[in-house]
């Protein structure tokens, strides 16, 4: 089976504001197959966001090749939908208008069919009664669900999610994880989900890719064989904690797992996440 998404020897170097060349990614190789849920896990500022922007075509890789359906990604694609870290809804539009915004923005006008599909998306994320509300009347979790509905509107084959639940409180975050699984079951998509939460990655994904600190490379790939549909009970199983332990070990001792990782670039996860911001 041909992969939906293919990263081959992808590296990305960009020039920072003070003129220095920063190597964010190097030697990234992985495939994502149809309707597979991939979680990318790594410390903050390791280049996860760069990975996402390469796939969405916002950046072009400086080394190697990112391809979707065998075609090299050089510009934004119509077959990808993005959910951002913050919901970033338009405060002057109501929820329904926000969901339909991508179509309006792209094509300039909206048909009644588009409105119907936007309503269907809102129903899917459980917000059909809130169609006429304004964004500031919704909680953070609800706003992010609108963000998901907006990303799903044009029925993209690939859904890219950039730490979508990281701005939410812990309780809402867990709830949103289950909610996402529920949505994904009803609307299967090829998903690239970026996160820095180990348990979130294990709960959601079919495979978890663990990245090293910058320049990021894949230091481990763990297939999560937990049965689906997953729910609150999945978290309580011993397999679940075995997976999280396995990943945790990978993150804290990356030098034992990889060959191409320089040892001076491996501060602990805690140091990384406290000291740096997202690239």
């Amino acid at each position: 089976m041909n992969p939906h998404v293919k990263f081959s020897q992808v590296g990305h170097t960009y020039t920072s504001e003070n003129g220095q060349a920063v190597c964010a990614l190097k030697g990234i190789n992985f495939n994502i197959y149809k309707n597979e849920f991939i979680a990318v896990l790594g410390p903050s500022g390791c280049g996860k966001s760069t990975l996402l922007r390469l796939l969405s075509g916002l950046y072009e890789a400086t080394m190697g090749e990112v391809s979707i359906f065998g075609t090299k990604v050089t510009e934004p694609q119509s077959n990808t939908g993005i959910v951002f870290q913050k919901p970033t809804l338009l405060p002057w539009k109501n929820i329904l208008q926000n969901v339909v915004f991508p179509i309006q923005h792209k094509q300039g006008r909206v048909s009644s069919k588009d409105i119907e599909s936007a309503k269907a998306m809102l129903k899917l994320v459980g917000l059909e009664e809130f169609a006429q509300h304004m964004p500031n009347q919704l909680s953070g979790g609800m706003q992010q669900r609108v963000g998901i509905a907006r990303a799903l509107l044009m029925d993209p084959e690939i859904l890219i999610m950039d730490e979508p639940f990281s701005a939410l409180d812990a309780l809402t975050r867990e709830e949103m994880g289950f909610e996402l699984l529920n949505i994904w079951r009803q609307k299967p998509k090829t998903v690239l989900f970026i996160t820095h939460s180990i348990s979130e990655a294990v709960l959601l994904a079919d495979r978890v890719l663990v990245l090293s600190p910058r320049p990021a490379s894949v230091i481990g790939e763990i297939k999560i064989d937990l049965p689906r549909p997953r729910n609150i009970d999945s978290i309580k199983t011993s397999e679940f904690s075995e997976y999280t332990d396995q990943i945790r070990q990978l993150i804290y001792r990356p030098e034992t797992q990889t060959e191409n990782q320089e040892s001076d670039l491996t501060p602990t996860l805690a140091e990384q996440s406290e000291g740096s911001t997202n690239a």
Partner: peptide, 22 residues
Amino acid sequence: PEELIELSKSLGASPAKEIWHI
């Protein structure tokens, strides 16, 4: 917000639309 600009770019919208709509 940068995300909205990226949303606009990911949709392949023109700079004029980016200004006018966002």
